[in-house]
């Protein structure tokens, strides 16, 4: 039986852990530790290795959800976690100082993985900081796609990681992006 895994990545405090909690069927596994560096200014604890959750399907199959640690110093974990993944959910914290720079960074870091699989982008905390708005993300991504030779149009949605509906919609868009022929079979 083949299971699949979806990778959820993004900078610190983008809502990766919360997103996995929102849709996981099992009590999610987390490796949060007290934040001891500058992360401390945004939240009290942060993921240092990974988050893990599962969506159980009929017939005993599973979709594994892996959340990467947000801090760049743990980037050695990113490639390890991404191996065998079918797609990437990139969450960007819009209340961060330079969210568009974060987008640049993560697209570049995961460029090879995105080219082989698929990408959806969730912009969180737009309610806390309205700028840059979604238009700016679309414009920036279009430039990045050209630069990195990636699919020119990907789903970019306003996302509240606490809302199961938002995360489910991101995953749904990812699946249809990965395989548009699913549309013929899924009513």
């Amino acid at each position: 039986m083949i299971d699949h895994k979806i990778i959820i990545t993004g900078p610190v405090a983008a809502g990766k852990t919360t997103a996995i909690k929102a849709v996981s069927d099992v009590m999610h596994v987390s490796t949060d530790e007290s934040a001891s560096d500058m992360t401390n200014s945004t939240k009290s604890s942060t993921t240092v290795a990974m988050d893990y959750g599962v969506i159980k399907l009929d017939g005993g199959q599973k979709i594994h959800l892996y959340g990467t640690p947000g801090q760049e110093r743990f980037d050695f974990m990113w490639d390890i976690l991404a191996q065998g993944g079918i797609g990437l959910v990139l969450l960007i914290n819009n209340s961060a100082k330079q969210p568009l720079a974060d987008l640049d960074f993560f697209i570049a870091k995961f460029r090879d993985f995105i080219a082989k699989t698929g990408l959806v982008i969730g912009v969180s905390k737009l309610d806390q900081n309205a700028e840059p708005n979604l238009n700016k993300y679309h414009e920036r991504y279009a430039a990045l796609a050209k630069k990195h030779d990636l699919s020119p149009v990907v789903p970019i949605f306003e996302t509240d990681a606490r809302l199961k509906e938002d995360i489910a919609m991101l995953l749904e868009a990812l699946l249809f992006s990965l395989d548009t022929e699913l549309s013929k079979q899924h009513v």
């Binding site: 979709i63 509906e165 990965l178």
Partner: peptide, 24 residues
């Protein structure tokens, strides 16, 4: 042309069915 059949389509369909009640 449309992309060829993708490995894992079955599990994708199951996941879509699973997500649908959770989505909007």
């Amino acid at each position: 042309n449309a992309e060829p059949a993708r490995e894992g389509r079955g599990i994708f369909l199951k996941l879509l069915d699973r997500l649908r009640p959770q989505s909007y």
